[in-house]
């Protein structure tokens, strides 16, 4: 599948995300001739262990994530970042997890927004919100380059595109910027070419960044 970079909005110190920034970003995509194509949505669910003795919580993963991505509606992905594990499964795995009664959903977040076509690039801009809520927790952006599925071969063109994009966005003087933190896919046992498992790992990485930036924002305010 085509290479994709998932980016997250990193607010400047002392600022936070708001829907005005999201609007500006969307307008910016349209200003560089991005053609709006429709909506997209991914869902990230944090699971927590159901324990009889809470004092043993340290023995179980704290960052167990279940992810559904729009390009693979019949698949579901599990990621445990701390142990660099990613697993792809048929979506029926969610049913199995329910039956096992060993982990339950702690919180679920949606990445949702609009998709744009820009030549050979596909862009998705979206907000990060808890399911059943409009409480904005972050902004994400996906850049997909349709002709290439090799991570290494696409690196130069992706970097060049991002440079142009950051320049276009900088004219709006927004209080932050999009960051690309590429996970070490090899640690997850993910070789070339790019697959949806790579996307799941990127989502998990972005989620960790968002949590870290919310926590550091709180620390600044305190």
């Amino acid at each position: 599948m085509p290479i994709k970079w998932v980016l997250h909005w990193q607010p400047h110190a002392g600022t936070s995300v708001n829907s005005q920034i999201l609007n500006e970003v969307s307008q910016c995509v349209e200003s560089i001739n991005g053609v709006k194509e429709g909506r997209w949505k991914a869902t990230l669910t944090f699971y927590k262990p159901m324990l009889r003795d809470q004092s043993l919580a340290g023995e179980f993963p704290r960052d167990f994530l279940g992810i559904s991505v729009p390009e693979q509606p019949n698949k579901y992905y599990f990621v445990i970042r701390a142990q660099r594990i990613v697993m792809e499964a048929d979506s029926s795995i969610q049913n199995i997890m329910e039956k096992l009664q060993s982990y339950k959903m702690r919180v679920a977040l949606n990445f949702e927004g609009f998709q744009y076509q820009l030549g050979d690039f596909q862009l998705r801009v979206g907000k990060v919100v808890p399911t059943h809520s409009e409480n904005l927790r972050g902004i994400v952006m996906e850049v997909e380059y349709l002709p290439i599925s090799s991570i290494e071969k696409s690196r130069q063109i992706m970097e060049e595109f991002l440079q142009i994009w950051q320049e276009a966005l900088s004219k709006r003087s927004l209080p932050g910027q999009f960051m690309h933190m590429e996970p070490n896919f090899t640690e997850y046992g993910l070789p070339e070419p790019y697959t949806s498992q790579h996307t799941a790992v990127q989502y998990a990485t972005v989620m960790a960044q968002l949590i870290a930036s919310v926590q550091s924002g709180q620390a600044v305010r305190n």
Binding site: P61, Q83, M87, A89, S92
Partner: peptide, 19 residues
């Protein structure tokens, strides 16, 4: 019965989950 096809690191995942 419920079945799900999964990728090869399934055993590692379930060990990590405490199975």
């Amino acid at each position: 019965t419920v079945e799900s096809k999964v990728s090869k690191n399934v055993l590692r995942l379930f060990y990590a989950l405490g199975y």
